[in-house]
Design a binder for these strands. Structure first.
Lengths: 229, 229
DNA sequence: CAAATAGTGTCTCTGAGACAGTATGAG
DNA sequence: CTCATACTGTCTCAGAGACACTATTTG
């Protein structure tokens, strides 16, 4: 092995959640150079005997304090352009995590320096390294996947109403959906959601049925994102 | 950098083409351990100052002899489970390449040991390392992308007929499509194909118009893969 | 001429979107 | 009661699939 070019390998995480009517990403403020004091995606070096996804789960739990939160984690892509990290040749494997709005948003060991930031307030150049690009790719992946997978439910608590699920779509896509057609579509797509029999109480208006995620991994027919203009 | 765990980084390529009515992948026979004598995906180590995609392009041209073939290349995913390579901790970034059927299929420096193999004849365990898995992932990616992108044209020569394009779909999806509806759908989807004004000659039947790829990067509405049964 | 392939017209059915109308809660 | 939200029914239009039909070549 010593004859092969030595690389460092990191994982970085695009962690998204829906808070109120904002799509937010988990960011950490860097405490050490390079890019000291700037915001960055959470992440870190992969141990030499650690699987990539395990490193991602470890970093996620270190940053959020949550062990196995009931969301979604998938590989996003790998970024390894020479010079992307001034410390040397670092290849980073980016992961995308979608989480429900957490009771205690960030409670890990690095809590002081980590916080949720609405993606609408971020602009090119705000983040360290090439993390702007990675975040942009993660957002586009998330938006695309809402169309043909039931992943919107990953942003919701274990039990949720159709209106909550609709709010996820509206927030992530920055669009308005007709509540009546949305209801019919979601409940009519096999395997998307399953009724729990329970209903909400104490809200305004008629109580809503509570659902949990169905068994489908692909939506057929897909949810259609209104065409951009 | 010396304080970070040292990894080796490779690129591996899932190179697909359509030959006759078969979807084939480019495989190389390994000449050195580990897995000496077994078939594997083409690939190799990334140079310490080389971009990942450049390494993929370099390996592709070394194996096929073609510089910038008019196909498609995209990152597929990264595989880095400890133990996947007996030589040590090797993380590989897999790329997916879609190429038109080449006049001289494989004419690179490693030509003797490289050849196209129909994917239908390959089964679990045929390939070295975790390349079975990578190939499977590449196939699924290719099949999915035909639905919502114009990538089928990457399997065709620069100018092609609607029937040739249909043959790509039928081969990759292992299905039959109605020639008449297919024709209407493809020519009616904005930006998918553009007429060259030329027609074929010398074939049986009425001459067909020749098209080249249109400017669209996403098909709307998408091509629908017949539901699996 | 027949056979083969290219391309068009038209019907039916499904599903998306618009939106009226009904159900059931809080105040 | 009013208001708000949940949910259902129904209409219209676009597009997928089935398939009859026309067009243009080779032999």
């Amino acid at each position: 092995m010593s004859s092969y070019p030595p690389f460092a390998v990191t994982v970085d995480l695009v962690v998204l959640t829906v808070q109120g009517d904002e799509l937010s990403a988990l960011l950490v403020r860097r405490g050490v150079p390079p890019y000291e004091g700037q915001w960055a995606l959470p992440g870190g070096f992969v141990d030499i005997d650690e699987d990539l996804v395990d490193a991602a789960v470890r970093e996620l739990s270190e940053e959020t304090g949550l062990v196995d939160p009931a969301g979604h984690l998938e590989q996003l892509g790998t970024y390894g352009t020479p010079g992307r990290d001034p410390r040397g040749r670092v290849v980073t494997v980016a992961y995308l995590a979608l989480l429900p709005d957490l009771p205690a948003p960030v409670a890990g060991s690095d809590a002081a320096s980590a916080q949720w930031q609405p993606v609408s307030r971020l602009s090119e150049g705000d983040l360290a390294f090439d993390h702007d690009r990675i975040l942009t790719d993660g957002l586009e992946r998330a938006r695309a996947k809402l169309e043909y997978t039931p992943l919107a439910a990953a942003f919701c608590p274990a039990e949720f109403t159709i209106a909550q699920l609709r709010a996820v779509y509206e927030t992530v896509w920055q669009t308005r959906l007709d509540p009546r057609n949305f209801h019919r579509k979601v409940t009519g797509t096999p395997g998307f959601v399953e009724s729990t029999g329970r209903v909400t109480e104490g809200d305004r208006g008629r109580p809503a049925q509570l659902f949990h995620r169905g068994p489908a991994s692909l939506l057929y027919p897909p949810m259609l994102r209104p065409a951009a203009e």
